[in-house]
Design a protein around this nucleic acid. Structure first.
Length: 308
RNA sequence: GGCCGGGUAGCUCAGUCGGCAGAGCACGCGCCUGAAAAGCGCGGGGUCACCGGAUCGACGCCGGUCCCGGCCA
């Protein structure tokens, strides 16, 4: 676990997948590990922009299609599965290339974040106990450090902190160094993207939504709804899926659903870009053309290796 | 042509009795350790269609002009 990871992270629709495939072809000994909260779900293919069957045949991909859409998913489930897969790849003498845009999942795999246990029942009890301001007051009294890092209006985080205190008997702020502290400083990572050209990513997002619509996203969502089990809380909030469900249940027109999904994708991409920009290990790649991006990525990875 | 309604932030609109121009969304900046494609905080943006009038003071009242929508002819 002390060796550097190979990784390509960055906003959705920035071209990570194509560059990863090209890099894998060139390097020859790498397998791709998807770092994506929604590609884990079987049956959610079009809207999550999963790699195609032929792409997955050309290079081994992992952590795609490992859960059913009625299962709740979580960062800890992902981290445990990812570490197992990476260890297995390395045991076979190959290298793992982490590719994806789910920032917290990436950090959980690569950095020593410590996730205190959860208890859904206790969480729901706390959530039912009163207004956000009262819960925040309790947290501020019990764990001032944690309270100082959580916004007084952010009910979900406040409830979670109180849950951890109740379940573990320890202060929420006593768990790990937090997101501010980065583990291995020599891990080379690349953010693929469009720092200098936001309009371009915007256009790519627009085109991608049109493409998903043409490829049959509505039908895919209908098939998910036709299953005998309802979509889980986590699966049902996927961008594109949530909006098409609204459409199929009659609350939005199809045009409206795709317009909302596009706006939400733009906001998501911005949040992803911000997340990865904060990570000092991440280096930008411009993607004027795929071969350029691959060359830059390989150069970064090899130079970071030799200096490590 | 007549009558009625409307014109306020990029968009949709609110604006009480005339007293410092507002909300939601968009956009930007930031936070966030078991939902993370989730959750949350902050704020940059205005010739209140235009011209004139009364008033200490007008987005608001009075007169006129232009534009949009509806009904009537």
């Amino acid at each position: 676990m002390t060796h550097p990871h190979l990784a390509l992270v960055g906003p959705t629709a920035s071209g990570k997948s194509a560059i990863a495939l090209e890099a894998a072809r060139i390097l020859g000994d790498v397998e791709i590990v998807s770092v994506d909260a929604m590609q884990v779900y079987r049956g959610m293919d079009i809207g999550t922009a999963k790699p195609s069957p032929s792409e997955r045949a050309a290079v081994p991909h992992h952590l795609i299609d490992i859960a059913d859409p009625w299962e709740d998913w979580s960062v800890v489930r992902f981290r445990d599965a990812a570490r197992e897969v990476v260890a297995d790849i390395e045991a076979r003498g190959r290298r793992a290339l982490l590719v994806g845009g789910t920032g917290l999942y990436f950090r959980a795999v690569v950095d020593p974040l410590e996730f205190p246990g959860e208890d859904r029942r206790i969480r729901e009890e706390i959530d039912a106990e009163g207004p956000t301001s009262a819960l925040y007051g309790r947290l501020a009294a019990a764990d001032p450090r944690a309270a100082s890092r959580i916004d007084p209006a952010n009910r979900r985080r406040i409830v979670r902190a109180l849950e951890v205190i109740k379940v573990t008997g320890r202060l929420f702020s006593s768990f790990g160094p937090g997101l501010d502290s980065y583990g291995d400083p020599v891990i080379p990572v690349a953010i693929v993207g469009t720092r200098s050209d936001a309009d371009r990513l915007r256009q790519r997002i627009h085109d991608r939504l049109i493409d998903m619509r043409a490829t049959g996203l509505v039908g895919e969502v209908q098939a998910l709804l036709d299953q005998d089990r309802p979509l889980s809380r986590t699966a049902s909030q996927a961008i594109g899926y949530a909006e098409v469900i609204e459409h199929l249940e009659g609350r939005l027109t199809e045009d409206e659903a795709f317009a909302v999904a596009e706006r939400r994708t733009r906001r998501f991409a911005r949040r992803q870009r911000k997340w990865f920009e904060r990570d000092p290990r991440v280096q930008w790649l411009e993607i004027e053309n795929p071969s350029d991006g691959v060359a830059s990525a390989l150069e970064c990875w090899s130079s970071c290796h030799t200096s490590a």
